[in-house]
Amino acid sequence: MDVTLHLSQQPDADALLGRSPLAALVGMLLDQQVPMEKAFTGPYTIAQRMGADDLDAHEIARYNPEAFAALLSEKPAVHRYPGSMAGRVQQLCQYLVEHYDGSASAVWEGAASGRDLLKRLEDLPGYGKQKAQIFLALLGKQLGVRPEGWREAAGSYGEEGSYRSVADITGPDSLVKVRAHKQEMKAAAKAAKAAKPGGDGNAK
């Protein structure tokens, strides 16, 4: 795995995401309740603060929890909720050590099909179905990991030519399109909620 990603919009952080399977998994894990660029810069920031060029699942798994939380909490904090996310990152790494000997890429290298890969991703701590589908789409669209049926397993995120998620971001232009799509989805959800009886008082 050595590709060019553009998820953090910072060259060094994107370079790490492109060469490190664990960094990509951690970035996806952090991608909630913060801007996408901040989430995917997180793995690079963590590696720097650990004095390393890459993330090591074994090292993170055995790190003192309080010290690791402090590491992520240093200003600027890695996440809006650095303490709780530090715990989630450690849980993810501990799971990888226990089930995949610490190798993040083993999660997808041994997958027999798209459905199997989705199940493997959903089993990761901190990964629900939507996050698993988005990461599966990222693997297929940008990282060349394409087991049979991967697009179907990724659902709408696997559609060719779509701009729904981080899986579709290849530069500034596509980032704008993905952001626009997310705003449309939020507006539609808000409108649907308002249209329900009792939603905003206007529905009959």
Results as ranks from 00 to 15, higher is better:
residue 126 G to M: 06
residue 36 M to C: 11
residue 65 P to L: 10
residue 108 W to N: 00
residue 103 S to I: 06
residue 148 E to F: 09
residue 85 M to W: 03
residue 122 E to N: 09
residue 123 D to F: 07
residue 3 V to I: 15
residue 56 D to F: 05
residue 59 E to I: 06
residue 73 S to N: 10
residue 10 Q to I: 04
residue 165 S to I: 01
residue 77 A to F: 07
residue 199 G to V: 14
residue 96 L to Q: 02
residue 10 Q to C: 06
residue 72 L to K: 00
residue 135 F to Y: 14
residue 46 I to P: 02
residue 66 E to V: 14
residue 77 A to W: 09
residue 17 L to W: 07
residue 42 G to Q: 03
residue 185 M to N: 05
residue 193 K to L: 14
residue 44 Y to E: 02
residue 189 A to P: 01
residue 13 A to T: 03
residue 75 K to S: 13
residue 183 Q to F: 05
residue 173 D to S: 13
residue 163 Y to H: 15
residue 130 Q to H: 11
residue 153 A to W: 02
residue 90 Q to C: 09
residue 140 G to T: 14
residue 199 G to I: 12
residue 13 A to I: 01
residue 117 L to Y: 08
residue 139 L to P: 00
residue 2 D to A: 13
residue 181 H to K: 11
residue 95 Y to Q: 04
residue 175 L to P: 00
residue 57 A to P: 02
residue 31 D to A: 03
residue 8 S to A: 10
residue 84 S to V: 14
residue 65 P to F: 12
residue 119 K to F: 13
residue 54 D to I: 05
residue 181 H to I: 04
residue 179 R to A: 13
residue 35 P to M: 03
residue 13 A to K: 01
residue 56 D to H: 06
residue 17 L to H: 00
residue 166 V to Q: 10
residue 131 K to W: 05
residue 132 A to V: 01
residue 125 P to G: 10
residue 102 G to T: 07
residue 71 L to Q: 04
residue 39 A to R: 02
residue 174 S to G: 06
residue 82 P to F: 14
residue 184 E to H: 11
residue 89 V to M: 00
residue 94 Q to P: 02
residue 200 D to C: 05
residue 193 K to P: 05
residue 100 Y to A: 12
residue 67 A to C: 10
residue 141 K to F: 08
residue 17 L to F: 08
residue 144 G to H: 08
residue 147 P to C: 10
residue 189 A to I: 04
residue 189 A to N: 08
residue 26 V to I: 12
residue 171 G to V: 07
residue 190 K to P: 08
residue 128 G to W: 02
residue 62 R to E: 12
residue 1 M to S: 14
residue 88 R to S: 08
residue 105 S to V: 11
residue 115 R to W: 06
residue 16 L to D: 00
residue 106 A to M: 07
residue 121 L to K: 01
residue 29 L to Q: 06
residue 173 D to Q: 15
residue 143 L to I: 14
residue 60 I to M: 03
residue 144 G to D: 10
residue 86 A to I: 07
residue 168 D to T: 06
residue 172 P to S: 07
residue 179 R to G: 04
residue 89 V to L: 01
residue 17 L to N: 01
residue 111 A to H: 04
residue 76 P to Y: 09
residue 28 M to A: 15
residue 70 A to G: 14
residue 94 Q to H: 02
residue 175 L to C: 13
residue 8 S to N: 09
residue 40 F to D: 01
residue 121 L to E: 02
residue 127 Y to S: 08
residue 92 L to Q: 04
residue 47 A to T: 05
residue 157 Y to P: 00
residue 132 A to H: 00
residue 56 D to I: 10
residue 70 A to I: 01
residue 200 D to P: 11
residue 51 G to H: 01
residue 196 K to N: 10
residue 19 R to L: 06
residue 97 V to G: 01
residue 155 G to I: 07
residue 58 H to W: 12
residue 171 G to E: 01
residue 164 R to T: 06
residue 150 W to Y: 12
residue 110 G to H: 12
residue 37 E to A: 12
residue 164 R to P: 02
residue 115 R to T: 15
residue 87 G to L: 10
residue 63 Y to K: 08
residue 164 R to C: 03
residue 152 E to D: 15
residue 61 A to M: 11
residue 99 H to R: 15
residue 96 L to M: 05
residue 124 L to C: 04
residue 8 S to P: 07
residue 180 A to D: 15
residue 37 E to Y: 13
residue 198 G to K: 11
residue 72 L to E: 00
residue 47 A to W: 01
residue 75 K to Y: 09
residue 32 Q to Y: 11
residue 8 S to Q: 12
